[in-house]
Amino acid sequence: MPATVDPPLVALDNVTRTYGEGETEVRALDGLALTIDRGEFVVLLGPSGSGKTTLLNVIGGIDAATSGEVVVDDQSLAGLDDRALTAFRRDHVAFIFQFYNLVPTLTAVENVELIAALNGGDRSDAERTLGSVGLADHLDRFPSALSGGQQQRVAVARALAKNSPLLLCDEPTGALDQAAGKHVLDLLDELNGEMRTVVLVTHDESITEHASRVIRMVDGRIVSDTNR
């Protein structure tokens, strides 16, 4: 009997994403095919406009492919209505953004609690999660009173609080200094060690050191896909 193989966590087949029409049409993703297995730490590298953020958004269900098949965690995203997509995002993915996207009028712990509550968590879960990223002493600080690195750690804690199998990170260190960036990447390494799949978009070559797999993109196409 052949050995049982787990299906990939992410499977894209001939995925295209275009913006605009006619002469102004931009093809952000161009017939892209890709699978990502559970537990991988994938870094998507590429210059500006290569389509890496679009790819992340399509995988995360916050943008829809113009054509092609997108399956994440055994769920096909094609044709899902807004309510189904919302449920998908709630249960399957978590995001970390370059500019943190914290709610400025909520404290650190409230920002995390907001998302934890989606999956039945509460304030104590939020406090514990913030403690795990080293911010136990900053629970009641507003984002404006935190450094960029601390804000991004709140964003990581927020993503952690969802307990999602797939972590999608869009330039998470892009706005941070080297030390703060390293701290965040170390956290992502830890999460990946706990069998969470990480897909990270960056144009910083040095981050590939953390990756188990590096995919390079140009003009909406994958030009190289290397396991490390």
């Binding site: 995002r89 249960d91 998302i115 927020r158």
Partner: peptide, 14 residues
């Protein structure tokens, strides 16, 4: 807008 985008990305419904 960005906050709304974040909330929607994390699973807040319309």
């Amino acid at each position: 807008r960005a906050e709304i985008g974040m909330l929607r990305a994390f699973g807040f419904g319309q």
